[in-house]
């Protein structure tokens, strides 16, 4: 359905925007390494079915490979700043202070409590869904502290938020048309969309309105 296609495209666009911004400006100002590392972990634990005989579609396969590869690539790209621009890297590390072990532990507990079947793949799948729902928190925390985000364009956040928002409509659509409902994905998805709303609100308040006052 269209909600899902545009949701996925919006997710693709967000990654493209982030990569383009970092590569073209050679700046990582305002980007949370922890959030990007968590996203890489999310895809690594969710798409393990790539290595089983479970086949959904070519679309599904290609998207999974892309999300896995791009999320790992972003982490590598950010790590390169460690030697390429140590001052910028150090500044990021100093600001990126959210304690992610709470998120990892919480997601693991949620994965163990709520899953479709008690198998390693299913528990890791559930873990990845819960982790994705909170992975933006280090970024949110960093932004609310500094109020600066040159590399994080409004487009990146908008595209990510739109992706989650469209997925909710996708689930409503599938519930109505296929009587299909994935309770874990829906509950975690609503949590995640709420996180993004907050992120967008802070971004608007701190970055857009904050910078507007400094314009020449």
């Amino acid at each position: 359905n269209l909600f899902r296609i545009f949701g996925d495209l919006s997710h693709l666009a967000s990654i493209g925007i982030l990569l383009h911004t970092v590569r073209s400006t050679q700046s990582i100002d305002g980007i949370s390494f922890k959030t990007q590392a968590l996203y890489a972990l999310v895809f690594m634990t969710r798409y393990l079915d790539l290595f089983t005989w479970h086949w959904v579609s070519l679309y599904n396969f290609l998207m999974k490979v892309f999300f896995l590869a791009s999320s790992v690539y972003i982490v590598v790209l950010l790590q390169q700043f460690r030697t390429k621009n140590p001052i910028a890297y150090k500044e990021m590390v100093l600001q990126d202070t959210f304690k992610i072990h709470f998120l990892l532990l919480g997601s693991l507990v949620a994965g163990l409590c709520f899953h479709h079947r008690f198998t390693l793949l299913e528990i890791l799948w559930s873990f990845s869904v819960w982790l994705e729902s909170v992975a933006i928190l280090p970024q949110l925390f960093m932004l609310s502290k500094s109020g600066r985000a040159q590399s994080l364009t409004v487009h990146y956040i908008f595209a990510l938020g739109l992706y989650r928002f469209l997925y909710i409509f996708n689930w409503i659509w599938r519930y109505v048309s296929e009587a299909r409902v994935d309770k874990i994905a829906v509950v975690a998805g609503i949590v995640q969309t709420a996180m993004y709303s907050d992120f967008f609100y802070i971004y608007y308040k701190k970055v857009i309105r904050g910078n507007a006052g400094n314009l020449p």
């Binding site: 996925d8 959904v56 479709h116 799948w125 997925y167 519930y175 994935d182 994905a185």
Partner: peptide
């Protein structure tokens, strides 16, 4: 009847 699905989403 509502069914719990396979993971066919991303």
């Amino acid at each position: 009847y509502v069914h719990e699905p396979e993971h066919d989403e991303l």
